[in-house]
Design a protein around this nucleic acid. Structure first.
Lengths: 180, 180
DNA sequence: TATTAATTTCTGTTTTAACAGAAACAACTG
DNA sequence: CAGTTGTTTCTGTTAAAACAGAAATTAATA
């Protein structure tokens, strides 16, 4: 049947394939990452069938991957007049996508870890252990909590503000010295 | 033989096992993550044998995982007087560890992706495509470059400065307004 | 230099996740 | 309501990674 090589120009192919590889390295299923890259590239809603043909994977694989992407709030199902099929689309706002991923991973993986560290510290078993181990766990917890809180604050800011902050770079140092 | 259940108290077990799970979700081999968590917890150099016994995995598995951790600059081999064996240790400074991970992942995964995006934009094939797709790739590239530059700047700062910035949280907004 | 200790490399197995294809299900249409 | 289209769920297969155990290698000691 069709496949990616026939339906996408070489640039799109490279983009989609590389994004799939990237996904793998960060614990994201390759097909899931490829589909998202494809939707970002084409920039308009696509039905599942078309994704299937373009990527040359099984329809069921696409179905499950689309569900996964919806669970991650990275794609939305939309409807096109005169077409029964669901079409799927993703935001073309890179910042918004990034924020979504950060948000979701924070909730799924980061916050639960903070919970575990709190449990560890609260456990009576740790007292028997040497005080230094306890201190290290505490430092790990403090760090993760600080990062978590900061992340939440950052997610609230508008992209333009965040961009300004990033452009500031290490000048932040002098700025911080000023207000201290 | 020995295993984790006998040699570590329940808190340490929980910590090490959870860290292993975390690793998996972020594309890090479970054993690799467990070993690192173990070394962090015990806070002093351990020989490979002891790690093997404590975690209840194969010696070869430990050997390969230790090499991986060394490649990531997360652990160091040290020597103990009167002991032929290599002992392995990790920093107890969470900030330092975090920075190392960020640095390494940036170099291995982030920067190469930036390269691919640059290639995509430079390719003559993209011109034939609609201009909007080109724009989206460009936005993705701009975003990643900004993030990359910012990351580099942040990695240069001392932990204390970074901590201050994080504590600042969304107050950064007002601060930015001031200097604009 | 023979022996022991320590570590790594190699090979095969196991486990897990990814995936395909078929079947079942649901929704729509004429 | 029969037929068609579209989607999901289920089952088995494949592929990839993780891992164990043995063999080989290297380093140290006596």
């Amino acid at each position: 049947m069709y496949n990616l090589a026939m339906l996408l120009n070489p640039v799109a192919q490279r983009f989609v394939l590389h994004w799939g590889e990237m996904g793998s390295k960060w614990g994201v299923n390759r097909t899931v990452a490829q589909i998202h890259a494809l939707l970002y590239f084409v920039g308009k809603p696509m039905p599942a069938d078309e994704i299937t043909e373009t990527l040359g994977v099984a329809r069921s694989n696409v179905s499950n991957s689309l569900k996964e992407l919806q669970n991650w709030n990275l794609i939305q199902a939309v409807h096109i007049m005169g077409d029964r099929r669901e079409h799927f689309t993703t935001s073309s706002d890179v910042w918004a996508l990034f924020k979504t991923v950060v948000q979701e991973r924070k909730e799924r993986e980061f916050d639960p870890t903070i919970g575990v560290l709190r449990d560890c510290l609260a456990s009576p078993d740790l007292d028997k252990e040497d005080a230094e181990a306890q201190q290290r766990i505490k430092e790990a917890l403090d760090f993760m909590e600080a990062l978590s809180n900061w992340g939440e604050q950052m997610l609230k800011l508008e992209p333009s503000t965040l961009m300004k902050m990033m452009k500031l770079g290490s000048k932040i140092k002098e700025l911080l010295a000023l207000i201290k």
